[in-house]
Design a protein around this nucleic acid. Structure first.
Lengths: 201, 201
DNA sequence: GCGAGTGCTGGAACCTGTTTCACTTTGACG
DNA sequence: CGTCAAAGTGAAACAGGTTCCAGCACTCGC
């Protein structure tokens, strides 16, 4: 799967692609230092060497920028995960394992995680398309982890959505210091039980 | 249960209590018109007839204010729900029914809901205590709905937490127009299955 | 090479959340 | 009463997200 991020309107010249990448990089860099509030538009512009106006041409708001950053990171994560699929047997366990892995990735860059997560949940309707992309990416990751053979059933898709809800919300809860890792782990394992309808092997 | 909102430090004179109430009222009013962005601190101050500085003395930030507004609304909801407990038999169904009822309340004031939900998920560590209060209130509502007899088991508490996660996240998803009511209903029913360990009656 | 059009730049300006401060009001206490 | 501290007021100032704009710089068709 070649990552076709934004064939939405313009094909973007090479220079422009490079600018976009510089901006995303600056964003991630600033975020990993000081989190959401450190990603200041003027700072991003300066760090990535573009004018403020240009930055806004590429990303119409700070939230758009951070959500795009999240897309980027998720894509990386997805690839990493593909290379090392979960080792567990049961789908539920596989998903839980995958999510906890993702969680550990977040722990490594808590500030970056905070910035992206805040942006994601703070996003209003104007960012819906982008947020939706992130959501689809997450869904893809979970479905991959389940390692299912055919097309997912509606019931499975429901379960996946609920898992996604839990994942996001638990992440936020942890980021704001209201839950421990252990707690998050339990919650994830709990919600993953929705996947395996009690099938006494 | 008499609602002892904030015995944290000062006992608040009557005048102060009135001010606080006026502020919360103004906040809710502005929010129900124009959502999160319409709750502008200067506007709240003016509407409630206090100086900006005073507003900030009562609520140290816009997010604090909106989270407090949510506490307030949740408390009302809780009381309403107590008066008309869910009619279903099974705990899972009771919880689902209750949450859908709450959801319908949100539909009636979508802008207000949007403002409160955005504030809640955007809140950073400095608002943790208040967010925690909201969380406890929500938990109480769900536990009430379950109508359980004794103390909840750890497993039940996990389930409740996951339900809460799902509820918040689904709410946001709906508010930003990325999911339909039907979808939310399905998600809630799905997650509520975690409550009744498959007990074939 | 030349002009049109689009993109980029630098910088000012605007809006709203937040802070600060000098001054007044209120309320409890002697 | 008079006094003092805490709380409230009004207004200015600051900060960071967002918008605007005038001018420069590329690219593409001629």
């Amino acid at each position: 799967m070649t990552a076709v991020s934004k064939p939405t309107s313009a094909p973007l010249t090479e220079r422009q692609e490079a600018r976009r990448r510089r901006i995303l990089h600056a964003s991630a860099q600033l975020a990993s230092r000081g989190g959401f509030e450190a990603v200041q538009m003027r700072a991003v512009a300066e760090t990535s060497g573009v004018a403020l106006g240009t930055l806004y041409r590429y990303f119409p708001s700070k939230v758009h920028l951070l959500v795009a950053t999240m897309q980027d990171q998720l894509q990386r994560l997805h690839e990493t995960l593909r290379k090392r699929p979960p080792t567990e047997e049961e789908p539920a366990a596989r998903v839980a394992q995958t999510l906890m892995r993702a969680f550990r990735a977040m722990q490594r860059e808590p500030q970056l995680a905070e910035a992206m997560a805040r942006a994601l949940t703070f996003a209003d309707r104007s960012v819906s398309p982008e947020v939706d992309t992130v959501s689809r990416l997450t869904t893809a990751i979970i479905l991959d982890a389940m390692g299912l053979t055919g097309t997912p059933t509606p019931a499975q898709l429901s379960a996946v959505r609920v898992i996604e809800h839990t994942w996001h919300s638990a992440l936020i809860t942890w980021l704001s210091g209201r839950a421990s890792i252990a707690q998050v782990k339990i919650d994830i394992e709990t919600v993953c039980r929705l996947i395996d309808p009690p099938n006494p092997a």
